[in-house]
Amino acid sequence: MVMQLNVFAENKPGKLEKITGILADANVNIKALKISSENGYGVFQFIVDNPEAAFRAFKQAGITVSQKDVLAVVVDDKPGSLHHMLGLLREDGIDVADCYGFVVEREEKAIIVLEVSNLTAARRILERQNYNVIGSSELYSL
């Protein structure tokens, strides 16, 4: 399991830049970022190499931030691989609330970040099918 940081932000010019500036100053490397927004506000989801340091830096800067455990799963970077994995989860009744991914080695492997209804069960299902569900240290050293 890895730690995702969720940041609340108003939709305003320069907002994302301000947030990324805090991470840059704290010498934190961003592995993945997803932005979801509503009318006037949004949530930035970050996967970073040092979530504790990032969380502290956000708090110190007065940013509204929370931590969330998510699954990070290694998949092959090829057509159909995400589809196959999601099928396994559906068969076992696991709901996917959120999902995004990033490539770590072109045409070799990608990492899928999953927020699911039952984290432990999802992990067990995927590991049984020989998926590599990675923890913080593995992800952060990528």
Binding site: N6, F8, E38, G42, V43
Partner: peptide
Amino acid sequence: ELNPKLFDGDLRKLKKLE
């Protein structure tokens, strides 16, 4: 303003709250 102590990062909850 949101109460930072009760922010859990879930956009759907924010929509529901709104």
